[in-house]
Design a protein around this nucleic acid. Structure first.
Ligand SMILES: [Mn+2]
Ligand SMILES: [Mn+2]
Ligand SMILES: [Zn+2]
Ligand SMILES: [Zn+2]
Lengths: 151, 151
DNA sequence: TCCTATTTAAGAATTATTCTTATACAGGAA
DNA sequence: TTCCTGTATAAGAATAATTCTTAAATAGGA
């Protein structure tokens, strides 16, 4: 469940140098918030990190947790799961298919691939539960956003 | 961009029979909401569907759109994108990896696979934009939820 | 046509997330 | 070390997405 100490140390070091490179102040809050996230492998949300930190840091605010996480996300020091940061999107295409998601504008388009439909699922994954569906998510920059960026 | 008429007809027919099989009333609202979603391939959110329907159905409520979409989702007549319908989850694991997501409880676990790291990306996908990352998302039922279900 | 369980509209409520502003502090300069 | 200042934080208000409550409407079977 937990992360090994050596892996945690590695993550902390990468975080520190990333902050310094970006010119960010190494505040107690940032250190603790990152460490709390880096020590877990269950993909917590902001609220879960907040409450786990509250006992050590009674004055920590939830807003700081959010602000810090999005900042680190923008710097590529952490990631978020799933395509969005917005509202939930729905899909009436029930054929097995895959998605290209634009990191800038959220554009999400379908594509099909017989090859990707038949992925070999590792034993590790089977050990987690019964697998019912698999899909590939590609993240990138759509053509329209690339053009805007080129200006 | 749009969906072909024949594909739309097929989706509508599947929807109708799915509703009847589930004992759902075929209300005007359900028909229109599903049709609006089935006619698009851009994965709209509830608000987008709502505003596209408002001109034809001035008394339609946003709540009905949400209620209908989640209902159809639960019946498997449509899908949602991304992990689940909760808050955003964060991840400090920066190595390329993949996820198993439990459809019941939202448990999200990492797994690694050199094979899945090197997926062949179809030309269709490259045509949509510059691909920066790829990951596989497996959906299923975790062991813990399977046990509960077995009771 | 009538009946009734189901569904809907409307708006209030809730929840996740962001904004505003006054205060605190990290870290460079002296 | 102390001082200074731009950056970061706490607190709570504000906003946006989603859900709940309740009274009215209606699909579809009798
Ligand atoms: Mn899709
Ligand atoms: Mn992960
Ligand atoms: Zn884009
Ligand atoms: Zn589960």
């Amino acid at each position: 469940m937990g992360i090994h100490q050596s892996e945690l140390d590695k993550r902390m070091e990468h975080f520190r140098s990333g902050c310094i490179k970006a010119g960010l102040k190494l505040t107690q809050q940032r250190l603790e918030i990152f460490k709390a996230l880096a020590a877990r492998d269950d993909h917590p949300d902001a609220e879960a990190l907040f409450s786990s930190l509250r006992s050590h840091m009674p004055t920590l605010s939830l807003d700081t947790v959010y602000r810090t996480l999005w900042l680190l996300n923008d710097l590529g020091l952490i990631n978020t799961l799933g395509p969005r940061r917005e509202s939930i999107r729905f899909d009436a295409n029930l054929r097995q298919h895959h998605h290209f998601v634009c990191l800038r504008c959220g554009l999400t388009r379908d594509f099909e691939s017989d090859l990707l439909n038949e992925l070999p699922i590792p034993e590790d994954a089977h050990a987690m539960g019964k697998v019912l569906a698999s899909q590939v998510e590609l993240r990138g920059i759509c053509d329209s956003c690339s053009q805007i960026e080129a200006l």
